[in-house]
Amino acid sequence: MGDAPDQAAAKTATPRAPVTIERPVPTKLDFDRPYMARALEAVDAEHPEGTPGYNNDGYTVLQLHVHYFDRNNDGIIYPWETYAGLRRVGFNVILSFISALLINLALSYATLPYWIPNPLFPIYVSKIHKAKHGSDTGVYDTEGRFVPNKFEELWTKFPKTHQNKLTFKELMGMTAALRVALDPFGWIANKFEWSLTYLLAKDEDGLVSKEKVRGVFDGSLFYQVEIARTNKAFSERQGKLKK
């Protein structure tokens, strides 16, 4: 006899599709409505209210993800602003230049409020949801909201060696697992984005933690890294002056 209808309906894996066993989904999330997309906060099991003390000022989580690079707060991010932001969080000149060029070139047109391309390749923060590409995690929905259960899925499906942490190999395995058919732009964009995330968020042990990845999704990690680098530079300078 097979499973009773109510039992079968609750199953999340089956031997006939081994991948459903290899990549389990979370079945018990002890916070309020994990299935509900959140416009303003990146919510997970450890942070049911979002990032403490982080003022979202009414931006969606996807808008927060890019807003760090809009330092003059005019709602537009030009390539030189992307470059400056990448430098502030520690990327070198060459990687920052190439990344800024690629990011703005890839995302600009989809976010423009008009049909004519802009040779300066601006990204409009208010329309960043239009630049969402395929083969991604699904943590952002098509309007730029944060979907908690999709975020939690990353941490049941892909870490194989450490709980709530990913190695670079596991990150690349994740990007391969997320690929959808006939989407070469999405395949490349996802690997590029997660490679930058790894370089930014990896710990001294070479692992990327769940909390730091969440900080990338809502943009709070960018500010944290900049502050830490500024404080470190200040301390080093003070130490030199005392000698």
Rank of each mutant, 00 (worst) to 15 (best):
E41W: 06
V43S: 03
V43N: 12
A45F: 09
A45Y: 04
P48A: 07
E49A: 13
E49R: 14
E49F: 10
G50W: 02
P52L: 00
Y54V: 04
D57A: 13
G58H: 11
T60G: 12
T60A: 11
V61N: 12
V61C: 14
L62M: 15
Q63A: 04
L64E: 09
L64V: 02
L64N: 01
H65E: 10
Y68S: 00
F69K: 01
F69Y: 08
D70R: 00
D70Q: 02
R71W: 03
N72R: 02
N73R: 05
N73A: 10
G75P: 02
I76S: 04
I76R: 07
I76Y: 12
I76D: 04
I77G: 03
I77P: 05
Y78N: 07
W80P: 03
W80Q: 02
W80H: 00
W80A: 01
E81H: 09
E81I: 10
T82V: 04
Y83K: 09
R88C: 00
R88E: 05
V89G: 10
V89I: 15
V89R: 07
G90V: 04
G90R: 05
G90A: 05
N92H: 06
V93H: 03
I94V: 13
I94E: 02
S96D: 05
F97W: 13
S99K: 04
L101P: 09
I103T: 08
I103S: 11
N104T: 05
A106P: 01
L107C: 14
L107I: 15
L107P: 15
S108N: 14
Y109E: 14
L112S: 06
P113L: 12
P113S: 11
Y114Q: 13
N118H: 12
P119D: 15
L120V: 07
I123L: 13
I123N: 06
I123V: 15
Y124L: 00
V125N: 03
S126P: 07
S126N: 08
H129E: 09
H129Q: 07
H129D: 12
K130I: 15
K130R: 15
K132W: 05
H133L: 06
G134R: 07
S135A: 13
D136A: 08
T137Y: 00
G138A: 04
V139D: 01
Y140A: 07
Y140W: 09
D141K: 02
T142Q: 06
T142E: 13
E143S: 06
